[in-house]
Design a protein around this nucleic acid. Structure first.
Length: 564
RNA sequence: GGCCCCAUCGUCUAGCCUGGUCCAGGACGCCACCCUUUCAAGGUGGAGACACGGGUUCAAAUCCCGUUGGGGUCACCA
């Protein structure tokens, strides 16, 4: 139990993979919120004990950048810009497990001396065989303690020269874990086997490092995903063996994907594979993926295609990969505060009808007792709706500023075309105002600018749009367009209001709906039927480009009518 | 397969602990209509759930047991 005057310490402890999975982001967010709510510290620790995994500094920076983007700041942990420095007000660092080996070895020695742990010499291949056997006999693998039949001194002697692991001698007793979300979880005696706590390479395993660090760093609350639930009895046993306290545990319900299984990178493969099935594609479009790899991948729903090939395939098929990592959401043009708001709702609720809230609200209202037990499906549509609402609620200036920032890294051509490379130009501001009401994400807003970025001569006219708005009824639309062209050419002030007046008076004079006028114009200017309000579209393009596009359209349509 | 966890609209959830105020509330999605210069957005309305079976009780979404279903986990990964 936590004493009343004790500093609450929560932690987020990712392994450095470079990406912050959205499930990890929620774990971090909840730990952050709990620390804020309780006036404690939120700590970031890097779990880099796997030497087989290549984990450059960039991997750590990637995760820290994602956390920072989401607005999750840590009181203790590596400094965000320089890994050789850290924030360490209580002097509990370093925050990289690879730099804490001495402390693990000291704790290990304790266990070894008390015979609470022992060396074991089976090779990986031998263990593999034992595991296979267990599987064949349909039982869970448990280490058989064969090493314990080796005399004690011999074990210690052999450990000097032979490669070996160290196993924890798990007591045969019931373990009851009190979990703030799940209640009491009981594990029968003998269920926990003698798991490895130190690897042959001299590094601790996750279980050992976590327990040692949580103690050393004074972690009081462990909030993590439910996939860790079965690890918890091991950790509790280790804590008891080492004489450590047991922190408060809270296991979060899993975030699941479309298939109902834990949301993962596989969901990207799943989306693309589904598209291939829908479109009856049996071989990869040229230049996207290796045909053999593709065939195997298509047939096996658990297979993952190499990253580059998957993106190329998705692009070729016109499929949007579902965002999974925090950076995917940023790339897709979501607002970080919206992402936080939405993921907070996955497994937690404030207990009222309120569901739109900010970080301050979370910091004030977050509560472990309101975390649910059931897995939550990630609903991209709801996230999108939240993001749409958030953009709609912004004022034009804020939208322009934040959208410009996004474009700088994701759509520089939009900035180039509006002269906004270094600052918000008048033309960019006008564009932003035009795009905001019809955008659900920043990416959406940028995609809507395509008509502006194209060369006047490069516009591809959509057949259906042309026939419906220009050719139908003996070229009614084309006639309107031709007439309007001259009115526009004569317009004095080329800005939205006067342009709007020109169009309206033209329509008014002939008693036709504005739609009959705007749509032909829209097709001529953009090739399709969708764009910002027509006066804004005109103003954005400018007089010369507008007239050039109308002329080009008219001449193409004339040919089409001639043929017909 | 062993062990563990879970079970309210299609989805996220409120309600469950402290049975009656719940013929179950909200949100996203869906449907219809309205608005409309396109697409969005917006407005109004609508359909839509207590997994099943047993108990306990005057009374159960709420408590108990079982069944079924789903998920997690069984590494010298974390």
């Amino acid at each position: 139990m936590i004493a009343a005057d004790q500093l609450v310490v929560t932690r987020f402890a990712p392994s450095p993979t470079g990406h912050l999975h959205i499930g990890g982001a929620r774990t971090a967010l909840f730990n952050w919120a709990l620390a804020r709510k309780l006036g404690g510290h939120f700590l970031l620790r890097i779990e880099d004990t796997d030497q087989a995994r290549d984990t450059g500094d960039e991997c750590v920076f990637g995760i820290m950048r994602s956390l920072a983007w989401l607005g999750i700041d840590w009181d203790e942990g590596p400094a965000p810009d320089d890994l050789s420095k850290s924030r360490d007000p209580r002097s509990v660092g370093p925050f990289f497990q690879s730099q804490r080996l001495d402390s693990y070895r000291a704790a290990l020695e304790q266990l070894l001396q008390k015979d609470l742990a022992y060396h074991a010499f089976e090779t990986p291949a031998e263990l593999e065989a034992m595991r296979d056997e267990a599987k064949r006999e349909k039982r869970a693998f448990r280490y058989n303690r064969a090493a314990l039949s080796i005399p004690r001194d011999e074990r210690f002697r052999r450990a000097e020269s032979e490669p070996c692991v160290v196993r924890f001698r798990a007591p045969e007793e019931e373990v009851v874990v009190r979990d703030e979300v799940l209640g009491m979880v009981r594990i029968a005696p003998g269920e926990v086997d003698d798991f490895v706590i130190f690897k042959a390479d001299g590094f601790p395993t996750y279980h050992f490092a976590v327990v040692a660090d949580d103690q050393a760093m004074g972690v009081t609350h462990v909030v993590r995903g439910q996939e860790h639930l079965t690890n918890t009895p091991r950790h509790v046993m280790l804590q008891r063996a080492l004489g450590y306290r047991t922190p408060v545990y809270a296991h979060l319900p899993l975030i699941v994907g479309e298939s109902g299984a834990k949301l993962s990178k596989r969901d990207k493969d799943r989306a693309v594979r589904q598209a291939c099935r829908d479109k009856n594609i049996t071989s990869p479009p040229p230049g996207t993926a290796d045909p053999d790899e593709f065939a195997g991948w298509l047939a096996d729903k658990n297979r993952q295609m190499s990253g580059g090939a998957l993106s190329r395939l998705a692009a070729a098929l016109g499929v949007t990969l579902p965002p999974i990592n925090a950076e995917d959401f940023r790339d897709a043009g979501y607002l970080p505060e919206v992402v936080c708001n939405y993921i907070a709702l996955l497994g937690w609720s404030p207990g009222s009808d309120i569901e739109k809230f900010d970080m301050g609200f979370l910091a004030e209202r977050f509560d472990l007792s309101r975390i649910g037990k059931t897995g939550a499906r990630f609903d991209y549509k709801k996230l999108l709706a939240f993001n749409t609402d958030a953009l709609a609620a912004m004022d034009d200036a804020e939208f322009a500023s934040r959208w410009r920032e996004w474009c700088a890294s994701h759509a520089p051509d939009v900035l180039a075309a509006t002269g906004a490379a270094t600052t918000i130009s008048e033309s960019f501001a006008m564009l932003a105002t035009a795009m905001r009401p019809r955008s659900k994400t920043f990416a959406d807003a940028a995609a809507g600018c395509a008509f502006l970025l194209m060369d006047d001569g490069a516009i591809a006219f959509d057949d259906a749009a042309v026939s419906k708005n220009l050719i139908k009824n003996d070229g009614e639309g084309a006639a309107v367009l031709a007439a309007l062209r001259d009115e526009l050419a004569a317009a004095g002030d080329w800005s939205p209001k006067p342009l709007h007046d020109v169009i309206e008076s033209y329509a008014g004079a002939r008693a036709i709906g504005l739609g009959k006028v705007a749509q032909p114009l829209r097709v001529a200017l953009t090739g399709g039927t969708v764009s910002p309000p027509i006066d804004a579209t005109l103003a954005l393009l400018g007089r010369d480009r507008t007239l050039a596009r109308i002329d080009r359209c008219l001449s193409q349509v004339k040919t089409a009518i001639g043929k017909a």
